[in-house]
Design a protein around this nucleic acid. Structure first.
Lengths: 257, 257
DNA sequence: AGGAGTTTGTGAACGGGAGAACAAACCGAG
DNA sequence: CTCGGTTTGTTCTCCCGTTCACAAACTCCT
């Protein structure tokens, strides 16, 4: 039984995507082609997709790996290697057909279909996410906004009413939701996560500053605003520190007392 | 001259933090202790910091690497190695003093001081960021909200008025701002970025779905909501695909037509 | 004081990703 | 048809990060 109700293992959920445990014990199963695309490559495919969309809108029919790499902000060798995991979609001496490659990447990622998504926690961030147009335009459709606070329920955001969190099971089942977004305060995050998983959600995007534990087979990605700032602060501190020790006169704006 | 006005190189800005170019040619400079903390470790330090804060609030005075690792969602060996880059702050046979370690990490990251920050682009996301309490509570102080749209200017958000973007130079200089947040539409992002850098900002957190080019010495971190969702979609697609090919009956909520 | 039990800090093996470099393949001109 | 120019796909090497395993160091109990 790999039901969503299986006991939660203290799995990392730090970005290492828990593959199915069905490894090794599996019988003579048919084995999916196993084009195991490296995680680092998967993370870049959406960037390439966006760059290709840009080129396409500008009317470009064909592009070289150099051009595309420039638009995506990566090394051209890396780009070619990434694309080679998907197959040989380019033509030597010519380059890549923009539309064709765009479709192939979209298909590989899975955004040719569109994915129903629920957002839990309609506070400041939840509002912004609900109204963010970048989701709908890229293969994702927000089908429900949930919040535990009765004062928020009933409010209309981006054409959708905010529903009580208790309806999570019914909504997830009705719309076949596989992806959930958590934008609640940190204290509520784990509980919300458990309920989402129990309802059948198997991928979670977590904006709450909390570490989530999930059963195997459930993917969690974390977006943490203050952590990003702290990483910048670290480098910033080292920059000014190095400048001071080097005796290099620093630019006025960068001086720190 | 490493002034912010130096010509922009087409540097990646994909997370590879451009170290100062002053490497190799440097004379007999004093060289900062060069405790080069690995990038992966730096990214985890804020997580440890948060976990320690949690333990501290719960009244824990001491913790083992195992406990802390559990709270931070990582492997205990990794945690110990990460901490070892900062120094030997633990006691064998005992563990770590929560308060002491907390301070050491905070100091290393640079959040014992507080960092003035400007936010550019006060749309949906900008609003949410301005009101997000997680910033102020963690060593960051929002000193200005900027927007190019006159209709947004003057509006009061989180106790701060929205100012015209033209004031960026004055504000950055007056408050000694080193960190800027971009929450504008994609088309405006590069221009805003250039202006910020010209004004003296040397670290940028970018929420716009665009690739930014910056001069060397400027750090950019990107947070892209739809890319995160697309990565989840990829894994989700593979999950259901694998299940179908394996003939494994999938849980009801996870079925996809 | 000594020994058993814990827990840290680190050396070493291992795996994955990045980048350089090159052979294979394609186009177009003559 | 052949040849030069161009661009992809891939191989090889290096480096970073993760993990294991263990010696060193500390506490507590007898």
């Amino acid at each position: 039984m790999t039901s969503p109700r299986s006991p939660r293992t203290g799995s990392p959920a730090d970005g290492s995507h828990g593959r199915h445990g069905a490894d090794g014990v599996g019988g003579p199963s048919v084995r999916v082609p196993e084009r195991g695309i490296p995680e680092a490559t998967v993370a870049r495919l959406p960037v390439y997709l966006r760059a290709l969309t840009g080129l396409s809108e500008r009317g470009t029919a064909t592009c070289s790996s150099e051009e595309l790499a420039g638009a995506a902000g990566v090394n051209s060798a890396k780009l070619r290697k990434d694309l080679s995991y998907l197959g040989s979609y380019g033509t030597r001496g010519v380059g890549y057909d923009v539309e064709y490659l765009r479709y192939q990447i979209a298909r590989e990622i899975g955004v040719t279909q569109d994915w129903p998504v629920v957002i839990v926690g309609i506070g400041n961030l939840g509002h912004a996410l609900a109204k963010y147009s970048g989701f709908s335009s890229r293969g994702f459709r927000i089908v429900a906004l949930l919040d535990a606070d009765p004062r928020r329920q009933g409010e209309e955001v981006a054409g959708l009413g905010v529903r009580p969190f208790e309806e999570v099971d019914a909504l997830v089942e009705r719309h076949r939701v596989a992806i959930g977004v958590i934008a609640t305060p940190a204290v509520a995050a784990q509980e919300v996560c458990d309920r989402l998983v129990a309802a059948g959600v198997t991928s979670i995007l977590n904006f709450a500053p909390a570490v989530l534990s999930v059963p195997e087979g459930v993917d969690v990605r974390k977006v943490d605003l203050s952590i990003e700032l702290q990483i910048l602060a670290y480098h910033e501190q080292r920059k000014t520190l190095a400048d001071v020790l080097d005796g290099t006169p620093v630019a006025s704006g960068a001086v720190r007392s």
